[in-house]
């Protein structure tokens, strides 16, 4: 197995959360995504042993869900929403800004491994349309100008930790609702920052 001991230990902890091993498949795929930035064939083999199903069964599940990436992603996964509320609030222009800045088409990653761009379906930020997620951290109420600022800031600052509240304060506008107290936790990498996955960290 090519996962290190620490990751295997964490994986086994996740498996124990569920009455049946196979239920852990989803979280373990997130774990694989956090390890490599995509679901490598190698991780598929490791997971297939951990949950006791064949590799192609793991692959079948991992390719069903859009958040499990089958190709390596950049440090920042830029997901611009294009569903109805964003669409009628000019998400197209946001998409254009991101495309222009990164030089990427949909589902492409740049050579430096900095950005991956994707136009995605509804991310539940309709009240704050148009919206984007950077590594699943939401920024609402974007303008084309602030979108460009956001991209530049990411490129120049290359923060390891991406925090929704910080991005929103810097680059966001109208929100879907009052976010109230600012949160300082966020994520690194193209995977949701979530305690069970050990992918969430606090910004100091």
């Amino acid at each position: 197995m090519s996962w290190d001991e620490k990751l295997i230990k964490q994986a086994k902890k996740i498996v124990k959360l569920y009455p049946q091993k196979r239920s852990a498949l989803g979280p373990l795929l997130h774990l694989a995504q956090s390890k490599d930035g995509y679901i490598s064939d190698d991780s598929v083999s490791v997971i297939s042993e951990l949950v006791g199903i064949t590799e192609v069964q793991v692959k079948s599940v991992s390719t069903f869900y859009s958040m499990y990436k089958q190709e390596p992603t950049g440090k920042y996964l830029l997901s611009v929403c294009k569903s109805i509320s964003c669409e009628i609030n000019n998400s197209n222009s946001i998409i254009d800004v991101v495309k222009d800045f990164t030089g990427l088409n949909n589902n492409e990653t740049d050579e430096e491994g900095l950005f991956t761009f994707e136009a995605v379906e509804c991310i539940g930020a309709c009240g704050g349309a148009p919206a984007i997620q950077v590594n699943y951290e939401t920024v609402e109420g974007l303008s084309t100008e602030n979108t460009l600022n956001l991209c530049e800031w990411l490129k120049n600052e290359t923060p390891d930790l991406v925090v929704a509240d910080e991005l929103q304060n810097k680059f966001g506008g109208t929100k879907s609702f009052d976010w109230a107290i600012a949160d300082n936790s966020g994520t690194t990498g193209s995977v949701p920052g979530f305690q069970t996955l050990n992918t969430t960290k606090d910004k100091k």
């Binding site: 989803g26 795929l29 997130h30 859009s66 958040m67 379906e121």
Partner: peptide
């Protein structure tokens, strides 16, 4: 109580698809 994270599939909002997904299957 376990908090389970989905992975990008609207169809999992349909309750039986959600159950499949929670069982580690295609939604």
């Amino acid at each position: 109580l376990v908090v389970h994270l989905g992975a990008g599939a609207y169809i999992c909002g349909e309750e039986t698809a959600l159950l499949n997904s929670l069982e580690g299957r295609r939604g």
